[in-house]
Amino acid sequence: MPSRQFRQQIAELTAQLAGRELNADLQAWLNQEHGVDSPSYQQLKQSCEQGVAEGWLCNREGGGIRYGRIFKPADDLAGFSVDVVDMQDIVGPHHRHPNGEIDLIMPLEGEALFDQQAAGWLVYPAGSAHSPTVTQGRALVLYLLPQGSIEFTRSA
């Protein structure tokens, strides 16, 4: 099953994230160790593209966004849940990250930006909030949420 291989890829990554504070230092480390030119980034992007093509990723749609939670929080994932969204030139629903959020940005078409960030990693600290936005094209975004915690809210 392809999602089993994908889970193993995520587990190898999240094992390196266990117990780390979600902050700018983690974002810098992720972009250095697992950045766009790294084998781990390329493998994750390829797996996400394959999962979308095969229909086991982003298999739901709402408000012009394809999405799906592929894994609930689990011990083998260091307590992270895993979601993947497929967005094109759109603003998503405002939400808050009680425990933070780690995003892997994978442009597919154009020079897609996610929250004004190019391809790579973006880390939101605990208590942060945003309306996820993709501009200048289409991107897949993989979300790692500690304990799967997310609160949909109204924008400020």
Score class of each variant (00 low, 15 high):
residue 113 L to Y: 00
residue 78 A to C: 06
residue 39 P to E: 15
residue 100 G to A: 00
residue 84 V to K: 03
residue 26 L to K: 07
residue 53 A to G: 09
residue 8 Q to P: 05
residue 104 L to C: 05
residue 105 I to R: 01
residue 70 I to T: 15
residue 41 Y to N: 12
residue 42 Q to T: 07
residue 5 Q to I: 15
residue 41 Y to D: 08
residue 120 G to P: 02
residue 130 H to F: 01
residue 98 P to V: 10
residue 9 Q to M: 13
residue 89 D to H: 05
residue 67 Y to N: 14
residue 49 E to W: 08
residue 56 W to A: 11
residue 10 I to S: 11
residue 123 V to Y: 00
residue 124 Y to E: 08
residue 142 L to F: 00
residue 127 G to P: 06
residue 149 S to P: 04
residue 5 Q to T: 10
residue 30 L to G: 03
residue 76 D to F: 04
residue 95 H to F: 07
residue 19 G to L: 01
residue 24 A to D: 08
residue 8 Q to W: 09
residue 79 G to I: 03
residue 61 E to P: 13
residue 114 F to A: 09
residue 71 F to Y: 14
residue 52 V to H: 05
residue 60 R to Y: 13
residue 14 T to R: 00
residue 150 I to V: 15
residue 117 Q to F: 11
residue 54 E to S: 14
residue 17 L to I: 05
residue 99 N to I: 10
residue 116 Q to C: 11
residue 136 Q to Y: 13
residue 48 C to I: 07
residue 132 P to C: 04
residue 69 R to T: 15
residue 19 G to R: 02
residue 20 R to T: 07
residue 38 S to K: 02
residue 27 Q to K: 06
residue 98 P to G: 12
residue 17 L to K: 00
residue 38 S to V: 00
residue 61 E to Y: 13
residue 129 A to E: 13
residue 154 R to H: 13
residue 132 P to S: 11
residue 87 M to L: 13
residue 48 C to Y: 00
residue 47 S to D: 08
residue 47 S to V: 06
residue 43 Q to N: 13
residue 3 S to Q: 12
residue 109 E to T: 12
residue 130 H to G: 07
residue 24 A to N: 07
residue 83 D to C: 15
residue 139 A to N: 04
residue 31 N to P: 01
residue 121 W to L: 04
residue 13 L to G: 07
residue 149 S to I: 01
residue 64 G to S: 01
residue 116 Q to K: 10
residue 50 Q to F: 09
residue 136 Q to F: 05
residue 112 A to N: 02
residue 57 L to C: 12
residue 45 K to V: 05
residue 7 R to Q: 13
residue 1 M to D: 14
residue 94 H to W: 13
residue 97 H to S: 01
residue 33 E to L: 09
residue 65 I to S: 13
residue 18 A to M: 03
residue 66 R to A: 01
residue 67 Y to L: 15
residue 142 L to W: 05
residue 13 L to Q: 06
residue 67 Y to I: 09
residue 16 Q to L: 07
residue 140 L to P: 02
residue 30 L to M: 01
residue 128 S to E: 09
residue 52 V to I: 14
residue 107 P to L: 03
residue 9 Q to N: 09
residue 130 H to R: 09
residue 84 V to E: 08
residue 146 P to C: 03
residue 76 D to W: 07
residue 81 S to H: 00
residue 156 A to C: 10
residue 122 L to Q: 06
residue 94 H to A: 15
residue 69 R to P: 11
residue 133 T to R: 09
residue 125 P to D: 03
residue 112 A to W: 05
residue 1 M to Q: 12
residue 31 N to I: 06
residue 104 L to Y: 02
residue 48 C to M: 05
residue 155 S to M: 11
residue 122 L to G: 05
residue 35 G to M: 12
residue 3 S to I: 15
residue 55 G to H: 01
residue 153 T to L: 14
residue 31 N to Y: 10
residue 57 L to R: 12
residue 67 Y to M: 08
residue 129 A to G: 12
residue 90 I to E: 07
residue 150 I to T: 07
residue 10 I to T: 10
residue 53 A to Q: 11
residue 154 R to V: 13
residue 91 V to G: 00
residue 79 G to T: 09
residue 73 P to M: 04
residue 21 E to Q: 15
residue 34 H to D: 00
residue 32 Q to A: 12
residue 62 G to L: 03
residue 36 V to M: 04
residue 4 R to H: 08
residue 39 P to R: 08
residue 50 Q to E: 14
residue 57 L to D: 00
residue 28 A to H: 04
residue 153 T to I: 12
residue 148 G to K: 03
residue 79 G to D: 01
residue 33 E to R: 14
residue 147 Q to N: 05
residue 20 R to I: 08
residue 126 A to C: 07
residue 44 L to P: 01
residue 9 Q to T: 12
residue 152 F to L: 11
residue 10 I to E: 09
